[in-house]
Design a protein around this nucleic acid. Structure first.
Length: 408
DNA sequence: ATTGAGCGG
């Protein structure tokens, strides 16, 4: 296992006094000062084991967990029809001490080369969904594995789940996650470890934010780079500099051009300071130059742009795109298209696959008209294909689905 | 630089 050292960042480098080290180790089981702080069931005998390689069997788990205590039951959860492992299992012990010991001793043990991740079984998903107490760590030394990360952060509170992001070969990607059972523990870990050196690398430790939250917190607020479109073909870099220069100091102004040097009628202007960029957007958006009404706004990052285009794409396919599941593994894109072509013009068609190319048993089919799509739902939903009844419905965006699931 | 996924009988 990786040996970790946490050091204080040199005072000269941070310009701030280092905070004192944590004074005491927290007690077991989410108890602090005798008061339960977290949702961990005291004395629980039931463990959830995730991140399982799909070929891990009950027998392998019995061999491993049986070494620690007496088992009541073991179950690898599987798809009802394919019997393929869902990558998680339940292990039930006769008593809580054994379960606790198994969690402590066996967490991150590799089975079929993949470290397993053990948690107490907690069937109520509300805490998992809320993400409270979840933190993100980046700039981690590659030598730091799951266990080392866990050991480092367990000083701040009870950890429900912990993981270093890894590539297919198990190599660390240099960032990871720690889910504490309380926000207080998470806050404490952030206060104490953000900016510290771990194995000589200065780590960032902060609250976990979903991609969307991150985009809106970082880029929506302040920006230096301005996007301008609907330029006349004759507008050149110099013209942008002149017009935008009225609002502040500019570091660059560029009209984008194709290979022949012909203007693509949009460009970017970068301001030295964000207030000036905002002023320019406010003043120039919608103004007319050479009879062209300029669109002026904060320049989007590539990721934001892609996100927006995706949204538009989905809107365009509203009512036309169908979501298919319970699809037999052997069905290819071409077969799927053929299956649905009798209801109309299939404009796009895709089987969802995992990174190794294995079908995930779901897919999307889009039609040219909403009528064709509706007919396909009526005719194909529930139809037996190879061995299973197909599920066919209108595709929903992820956010819509999440919202619906929360209501139910 | 890199902001998961996830709970049965």
């Amino acid at each position: 296992m990786a040996q970790i050292q946490v050091q204080r960042q040199q005072a000269a480098a941070t310009g701030a006094a280092a905070p004192p080290p944590p004074q005491s180790m927290p007690t077991q089981n989410g108890m602090a000062g005798g008061v339960a702080t977290g949702p961990i069931p005291l004395g629980s005998t039931s463990l959830y084991v995730g991140d399982l390689d799909l070929n891990v069997s009950e027998a392998q788990l019995a061999d491993l967990f049986g070494q620690v205590g007496q088992l009541v039951s073991i179950r690898v959860c599987r798809d009802q029809t394919t019997r393929r492992s869902l990558g998680y299992a339940y292990i039930n012990f006769t008593n809580g001490q054994e379960a606790a010991r198994a969690l402590e001793l066996l967490n991150f043990t590799p089975l079929n080369n993949s470290p397993i991740r053990i948690m107490y079984s907690h069937r109520d998903p509300s805490l998992r969904k809320s993400g409270a107490g979840n933190i993100y760590i980046k700039n981690l030394d590659k030598a730091i594995d799951h266990k080392a990360l866990h050991d480092t952060f367990s000083a701040f509170g009870n950890i429900l789940s912990c993981k270093v992001a890894t590539d297919a070969s198990g190599q660390s990607k240099g960032y990871g996650f720690v889910q504490f059972d309380t926000e207080e523990a998470a806050k404490n870990a952030i206060d104490k470890l953000n900016g510290m050196l771990i194995n000589d690398k200065q780590v960032y430790v902060g609250p976990f934010l979903r991609k969307q939250e991150r985009d809106s917190s970082t880029s929506n607020t302040r920006f230096n780079n301005v996007f301008v479109k609907n330029l006349s073909e004759s507008t050149a870099d110099e013209d942008l500099k002149n017009v935008f220069g009225e609002y502040g100091s500019i570091t660059s102004a560029v009209v984008m051009r194709d290979g022949d040097g012909k203007s693509r009628c949009f460009g970017f202007v970068n301001f030295e300071n964000a207030d000036d960029a905002a002023k320019a957007v406010e003043a120039l958006n919608g103004e007319k130059f050479d009879d062209k009404e300029w669109f002026v706004a904060k320049a989007q990052k590539k990721s934001e742009r892609e996100q927006e285009l995706k949204g538009r794409f989905e809107q365009k396919y509203q009512g036309l795109n169908l979501y298919i599941k319970n699809l037999d593994d052997t069905i290819s894109d071409e077969m799927l298209k053929e299956m649905f072509s009798e209801f109309g013009t299939v404009t796009s068609c895709k089987v969802v696959r995992d990174p190794s190319g294995v079908s995930k048993g779901s897919g999307f089919v889009a039609f040219a008209t909403p009528e064709e799509a509706s007919r396909a739902i009526n005719e194909m939903n529930g139809k037996m294909i190879v061995s299973k009844p197909l599920y066919v419905a209108h595709a929903q965006r992820k956010e819509e689905r999440r919202a619906r699931l929360q209501v139910q």
